[in-house]
Every structure is written in structure tokens, then in C-alpha cells.
Computed example of a mutant assay.
Amino acid sequence: MTLQTWWLFVVTVFFISATPGPNMMHALSRSVQVGFRRSIAAMAGCISALLLALVLSVVGIGAVLVAMPHLFEVIRYAGAGYLVYLGIKAWRASDDPEQPEAQVEGRAVMTPFMLYRTGFLVGISNPKLLLFAAAFFPQFIDHHQPVLPQFGILVVTYLFSDGLWLTLYGLGGRSLSRFLARRPVRRAFNRLTAIVFVTFGIVILRAKA
């Protein structure tokens, strides 16, 4: 892989990562709910899911999903269902601006592990990521050179780009929280978050493998 090819990959994934999606919306909403510092755990979950998906695509799981469409369908329905579930939770979330932290079913304050777990589930809920990586990464690989080191460089680059944008969205959520001091504004934000997550779920559900 030449330096020119790598730079082309950098520019491509920079704009791919910037595109608003479930991960970015989750980072934004978590930052509003629990503050930027605590939302880092959720971002770490999203990044971990991305790393797992990229590694699995490298070892050929994407090809397995193509060869076994029924398995892909099961994963797709599960992912779409989870995003819709998050949308319902966001719709029903408290609009009290004095509530400092998100609650888990009204029982307990979310721990860093809970934030991480939710971020991971959001990140892994789109099985299309496996197919995308399996089809996208090889375009930048020089098969006349060792393949694994090149995949390693591409994976690290992708993770860095996605992590950068997650951080920027999280910082945006911290700034946005200042404007959500009124109940109607926070309620509108919760409703918008819910609509976005449900929309992503429907898009995944309607997409064909």
C-alpha cells in the first residue's frame, strides 16, 4: 500500500465517519444526558464494536454472512429491533433538565459499564458494517505486499477517524446541553433522538442484503 493510497483511504473514511449515524447520534445524546466525561464510556463501546466488526470482516465473516443470508437476516432484524427499542426509550426519557444522569428503567444511575455496553450494542447493531468493511478494505490493499500489516494500518486509521468524530459529536452534545434547560426544548430533543433511532432501525430493516 503506497502513501498515496493510504491518504485516499484517510480522506474517504474521514467523510464516512462524519456522516451522522447511530453511533454519532448516540454519542451526542449520551453527552447531553450524562455529560461529556461520562459519555466517553459509551463512545468506547461504539469504538469497541467497530473494532470487532472490522476484525471479523478481515477474517472473512462478511463473506459468511453473504453465503448464509438467513443468518444475516436474523442479525439484521435484531439490530433494527434494538435501534427501535432505543428510539422508544428516548421518546419516553425524562424531560427534567435537573435530572443529572440517565436512569436504567427508573431504578439506578447508569454505571460506566452500562454506558459502555449500550454504546457497544448500538455500534454492533448494524450488520451491514461487516459487509461494508469486507468489500471496502480490499480496495486499498496491495496484494503484492504482506496483507495483514496493511489491514492493521487501515483498521487503526478507521478507528482513529471514527473516534475523532465521536469526540466531536460528544463535545457538541455538551454544548447543546446548555440550551436544553427548559422542559419543552429537552422534550423536543428527546423526541428528535427517538425519531432518528427509529428511522435508522427502519432503514436497516428495509435494506436488502
Rank of each mutant, 00 (worst) to 15 (best):
L3H: 00
P20T: 03
G21K: 02
N23L: 04
L28R: 09
R30F: 01
S31V: 05
V32Y: 04
F36D: 10
R37T: 13
R38A: 15
A42S: 15
M43D: 11
A44L: 15
S48H: 10
A49N: 09
S57A: 15
S57Y: 02
V59D: 04
G60K: 05
I61D: 00
A63P: 01
V66R: 01
V66K: 01
M68C: 07
M68G: 00
E73H: 10
R76V: 03
Y77H: 04
G79N: 06
Y82M: 04
V84N: 05
Y85D: 04
L86W: 00
G87F: 00
G87D: 06
R92I: 12
S94H: 01
S94M: 06
E98D: 15
A102R: 12
M110F: 10
T111E: 04
P112D: 10
F113E: 09
M114I: 03
M114Y: 03
L121F: 11
L121S: 08
S125D: 09
K128P: 05
L130Y: 02
L130P: 01
F132Q: 01
F136T: 07
F137T: 11
I141K: 01
H144Y: 02
H144W: 00
Q145C: 02
Q145A: 14
V147C: 08
L148G: 12
Q150E: 05
I153A: 15
I153S: 11
L154K: 10
L154Y: 05
Y158D: 07
S161L: 08
L168E: 02
G172T: 07
S177P: 12
R178N: 14
F179S: 15
L180W: 06
R186A: 13
R186S: 09
T193M: 14
T193D: 06
V196E: 00
F197L: 08
F197W: 04
V198D: 02
L205Q: 07
R206I: 09
